[in-house]
């Protein structure tokens, strides 16, 4: 092994002829196994660690058993209904759904934010209510994303409500699928 920066030679002075000259020993230690071990442990910790700590998203749901009079009546003009369907499809309409479905529009998760913000800007705050209606094939992610949109847009009043059969039919018609057998 190469360079000889070794221990200071303690026996610096000349010894007698009978005394063996002390061999200089290299104090260099081969660090390679130590590095190996170090990185092995690092890998272990990297794999077992959870870096992103989960967050808590508060959700309050209304009491369904509350009497009807106690329920806050939503003004139709301030309502904005978002329908969620399979494969992240989003549909919406404002106010009440027209019988011919003319105000029923298709959208997606990117564009719906602009629509919600537009509605928020055009509606008095006390009237605004966003109604989220996921259908049977909407996934949990869609619902949470939509609830998240409510936080992002700072909508004070919103509700997750069961979808109506008429709306299911409209979604099916738009998606080109046949209505489910014995539709719910």
């Amino acid at each position: 092994m190469g360079a000889d920066v070794s221990a200071p030679d303690s026996g610096g002075h000349k010894k007698g002829p009978g005394v063996k000259k002390q061999t200089r020993k290299d104090t260099k230690v081969d660090m390679t196994p130590m590095v190996d071990l170090g990185f092995l442990l690092i890998t272990f910790f990297v794999f077992t660690t959870t870096m992103s700590t989960p967050k808590a998203f508060k959700l309050n749901v209304p009491d369904d058993s509350a009497k009807d009079e106690e329920k806050s009546e939503a003004k139709a003009s301030g309502a904005f209904t978002v329908l969620l369907s399979k494969e992240n499809h989003v549909y919406y309409y404002e106010g009440q759904l027209a019988p011919d479905g003319s105000n029923f529009k298709s959208s997606n998760f990117k564009d719906i934010r602009a629509e919600i913000l537009r509605k928020k800007a055009n509606t008095p705050e006390k009237d605004l209510v966003v109604i989220i209606k996921p259908n049977e094939s909407a996934v949990y992610k869609n619902v949470v994303d939509m609830l998240d949109e409510m936080q992002i847009a700072e909508i004070k009043r919103y509700a997750v409500v069961d979808i109506f059969p008429g709306e299911v039919d409209l979604i099916n018609a738009t998606e080109g699928g046949a209505p489910p057998p014995g539709g719910k």
């Binding site: 808590a56 998203f57 609830l147 998240d148």
Partner: peptide, 11 residues
């Protein structure tokens, strides 16, 4: 888990 903008830590 889905994602959200909530920044409150999980208790």
């Amino acid at each position: 888990n889905p994602k959200s903008v909530s920044s409150e830590n999980q208790p």
